[in-house]
């Protein structure tokens, strides 16, 4: 501190650097001081009203009883209130009745998106576009039927179609012939189709039977769709589907959701799947 203050009378603190840089001791502007004390009052008010000060075993709760979880739950309740109107209506209705109502079915489609994402999308794709080895839900081809009740049933009980492996029953030549016939889209024209009893499940015209879950062999859609479709068909004929006696068999299991999801959830999912565009 300089002994002789070279700048007297200007209210400096006596801290002077580089000849003339000095610190003044002027009071802060009044508006600033008001804001300063107001902010301290604010903090005190906040501490009284809201949870704030941590302690060893918890924290001060504040007299308003506000919590983040509480606010979240209130928000959730608000959403549920809006949904409740639709949800109570849906409870008393069948999937078919929901489909008949445009407003309710668009509500169902909007609200079942999460359900589908959680439970179905892993195999069937996020918009029912299918995946390698898993059926497309957006097309009009249904192995078990595309009525909304049937879809509901498929979800509730699951599905597991069986096609016995033919590897030991067919010669290579016969296999080639049958595969070619299936590829042509008209397998019934091939005598082997009758001889080897394919018709028993796939029907005399090769169009499949939904009651059995046998595939339609005459349409444009392949249940097991691969780049080399002929090889894929041969593979299916040879080793079958879900045939436990053949280790190379195709696995095609739709798990049962009846014990995982509620009836209402399954109903909504059925409507959702139906609305992909293939429902019948």
């Amino acid at each position: 501190m300089a002994d002789n203050n070279p700048f007297p009378g200007e209210n400096n603190t006596g801290h002077i650097w580089d000849d003339n840089l000095r610190e003044l001791d002027n009071p802060a502007p009044r508006w600033w001081m008001i804001a300063f004390w107001a902010s301290i009052l604010w903090v005190i008010g906040y501490a009284i009203l809201y949870p704030m000060i941590p302690g060893l075993s918890g924290y001060t709760k504040g007299i308003m009883g506000w919590t983040q979880m509480g606010e979240y739950k209130e928000g959730l309740d608000e959403v549920q209130m809006v949904r409740a109107e639709f949800e109570t209506k849906l409870q008393g209705m069948t999937a078919k009745e929901i489909l008949a109502d445009e407003g309710l079915s668009s509500y169902t489609v909007a609200s079942a998106k999460v359900l589908f994402g959680d439970n179905c999308a892993a195999c069937h794709g996020s918009n029912g576009q299918g995946g390698p080895g898993y059926p497309v839900l957006a097309d009009d081809n249904w192995i078990y039927g595309g009525a909304v009740e049937t879809i509901e049933q498929s979800i509730t009980n699951g599905r597991m179609g069986i096609m016995p492996a033919q590897a030991n029953l067919l010669t290579d030549e016969e296999l080639d012939k049958l595969a070619a016939a299936v590829m042509s889209g008209n397998p019934a024209a091939e005598p082997l189709f009758m001889e080897k009893a394919c018709f028993a499940c796939h029907g005399p015209d090769g169009k499949g039977m939904q009651a059995l879950g046998s595939a339609n062999l005459t349409d444009a859609i392949w249940r097991f769709n691969e780049a080399d479709q002929l090889a894929s068909v041969k593979q299916t004929i040879k080793h079958g589907v879900n045939d436990t006696s053949d280790p190379l068999t195709r696995e095609a299991v739709m798990p049962k959701f009846g014990d995982r999801l509620s009836k209402d959830e399954i109903k909504k999912l059925a409507v959702y799947v139906y609305k992909f565009g293939g429902g019948q």
Binding site: N127, G128, Q129, I221
Partner: peptide
Amino acid sequence: QPLYVLQSD
């Protein structure tokens, strides 16, 4: 998604 879907016909 999907951009298009093949139908059975």
